[in-house]
Nucleic acid binder design. Structure first.
Length: 587
DNA sequence: GATCAGGGCGCG
DNA sequence: AAAGCGCGCCCTGATC
């Protein structure tokens, strides 16, 4: 039996020319087994040809930086440990042990991922690294810096309050980093023709550069007529507001929901105008030209980009694609999409993490809100939804605030968890998700405001300000525990599914156009079902037609395994809405 | 000319 | 019909 290498740390090599890399093999106890130096050009090959690739966990400073070249070379890796992302988790987690050493490692706080920077920069482009600041930002990428940080992190987890859960979190976060890079490389299949057809239907024919789309222009005329001012500016909020005031619409803002309350001939065309100009500027022809080429939209995902642990995105508004344009997400010929989203992810997560068996009972079956109504807690599904969102967001007024007490009576454990989180946050404390991600400590400014309110000479204004900012922070921490744990469930789901999809056989049947066209997904994914989109509680898998049913089963099984991984035997369902469809239009 | 904050709105 | 969490992006207008 051979000794399986568990960890391979990669970084730039010290004391040599800048284009040399070093790989350090470690055994399971982090004992160094050996080092190799190689030229950077052979890095992808070194990965692709490593023995027993699925037994290796690569340890590197930043997934976006190290993985891109591998993907371009047509290879993938099974597992990694992303030091930058794990550092960010561990240095703020309330559970971390021996955290002082991590906090002293300042290089790692500053290290920004390459994911967000220009994608066309060459890997390891050190040519103009002349000044100290740039050199410092390179420091974490050196192999010995990476190795030292890795040892600090392993020690911090081992000495933590809950090493098991933190280990899960770091693994899930790192798997997410791999997936983010892979989905960028694969791209979301995007039909330019469908997108153009939608634009033309809604806006009219594509205008010449500098011109305004026909429907927008016509609507602007209508709106200006209703305003009694042929030169009124519709795109400047202050000017539009003044124009509205002149015709008797005394709104305090020009937001849609406020304008909708006024009865005036200008309102209807104005709201339509706003809708259309939004489509033009956010996802119009310019977007199409910039973001959709070769049948793919390639957003830059930013794992860990949100404090709660959700992903963010950069460029193209990947996480804000309007439902209107979803039909443009279209599988290649011979392929299909498997689209799955979780019904009411956050309240289900809340039920599980609070151990609220009553709420978990209401959640059994397809619709949690119907379950709440069936138990007589509130009257309608809509009320159940509003009440639940209000409870998780901290609503105090309106219908939502009025309905929350009913929920509190029916589900004291679940509501107690979010109420506690709010109380802790309002008092300046830190809250922590199920797997160990903690909210940031309050800012010095926040503390100053609270302290000022406690001083003897404080005014009523000081106290009101402090109450307001305490309540704001309470709503943030209230939501943090739920949103953050939901993000953890989703990551566990993704990571498991990714592993399952990797095990599928390559559909390399050479079947004509299907294989040819799917090449847009890049060499690593051309013949095999792969994840191509992720949005908080929804995934899309791009799959060869023949694998669709298998993929659907894998998606369901992964959800079950993710639930078990996080919540053990606690009886909570996470039902999926799942469909196999050539396009991602929402029913 | 570049940058920033606020309003507004798309997504969950 | 609504006001309560987390984002990114576009537009405008103010400011350097």
């Amino acid at each position: 039996m051979t000794t399986a290498t568990r960890w391979r740390v990669v970084g730039t090599a010290a004391d040599t020319q800048a284009d040399a890399l070093c790989i350090v093999d470690l055994d399971a106890d982090l004992v160094e087994l050996g080092r190799i130096i190689l030229p950077r050009a052979s890095w992808p090959a070194a990965v692709a040809e490593a023995p027993a690739p699925d037994a290796v966990r690569w340890v590197w400073s930043d997934t976006a930086r190290w993985y891109r070249g591998i993907l371009e070379a047509g290879a993938t890796v099974a597992r990694c440990h992303d030091l930058r992302l794990c550092h960010a988790i561990l240095r703020t987690s309330a559970w971390t042990g021996e955290a002082a050493a991590l906090r002293d490692a300042r290089d790692w706080d500053a290290a920004a991922s390459e994911a967000g920077v220009a994608a066309d920069d060459a890997l390891f482009d050190l040519e103009d690294v002349a000044d100290a600041a740039a050199a410092a930002s390179e420091a974490p990428h050196a192999v010995d810096a990476a190795l030292a940080e890795f040892r600090r992190q392993i020690a911090a987890v081992a000495a933590s309050v809950n090493p098991g859960r933190l280990t899960l979190l770091l693994a899930a976060e790192s798997a997410g980093a791999l997936l983010a890079a892979e989905m960028h490389a694969a791209g979301l299949p995007w039909s330019r023709a469908v997108h153009e057809a939608i634009l033309e239907e809604v806006l009219g024919a594509r205008p010449a550069p500098g011109e305004i789309a026909p429907r927008v222009r016509d609507l602007a005329v209508t709106v200006r007529r209703a305003l009694g001012d042929p030169t009124a500016s519709l795109d400047s909020q202050p000017k539009l507001l003044r124009s509205l005031h002149r015709v008797g619409v005394l709104a305090s803002s020009t937001s849609r929901w406020e304008l909708a309350r006024y009865d005036h001939p200008v309102i209807e065309p104005l709201l339509r105008y706003k809708k259309l100009t939004r489509l033009v500027s956010a996802n119009g022809w310019a977007w199409l030209d910039e973001w959709a080429s070769e049948g793919r939209f390639r957003p830059v995902y930013v794992p860990g980009g949100v404090v709660t642990g959700r992903w963010a995105s950069s460029g193209g508004g990947a996480l804000q694609l309007p439902r209107q344009l979803r039909p443009a997400v279209r599988a290649d010929e011979g392929w299909t999409l498997v689209v799955a989203d979780v019904a009411q992810l956050e309240p289900r997560v809340l039920a599980a993490m609070s151990g609220d068996l009553t709420l978990a009972g209401a959640a059994r079956g397809a619709d949690l809100y119907d379950g709440i109504v069936a138990r007589g807690v509130v009257g309608t599904r809509q009320e159940a939804k509003i009440a639940m969102l209000g409870a998780m967001y901290g609503a105090t007024t309106g219908d939502s605030g009025r309905l929350v007490p009913a929920l509190r009576r029916a589900y004291p454990r679940a509501m107690g968890l979010v109420d506690d989180a709010a109380r802790v946050g309002a008092g300046g404390g830190v809250v922590t998700t199920w797997l160990g991600r903690s909210s940031p400590a309050p800012s010095p400014d926040w503390r100053t405001v609270q302290d000022a309110a406690g001083a003897p000479e404080a005014t009523e204004g000081d106290r009101a300000r402090a109450r307001r900012s305490a309540a704001n922070r309470g709503r943030f921490t209230r939501n943090f525990v739920v949103q953050g744990t939901a993000a953890e469930w989703a990551l566990a789901w993704l990571a498991d599914l990714r592993r399952e999809l990797r095990a599928l056989p390559d559909d390399g049947d050479g079947g004509g156009s299907a294989t040819v066209k799917a090449r847009a997904s890049g060499p690593a994914f051309a013949g095999r079902a792969h994840l191509c989109f992720f949005l908080h509680d929804e995934i899309i898998v791009h799959a060869p037609l023949g694998q669709a049913e298998v993929v659907a089963d894998l998606i369901r099984c992964s959800a079950v395994r993710a639930t078990h991984l996080l919540f053990g035997g606690f009886p909570i369902d996470f039902p999926l809405d799942l469909r196999i469809t050539p396009d991602a239009a929402k029913g």
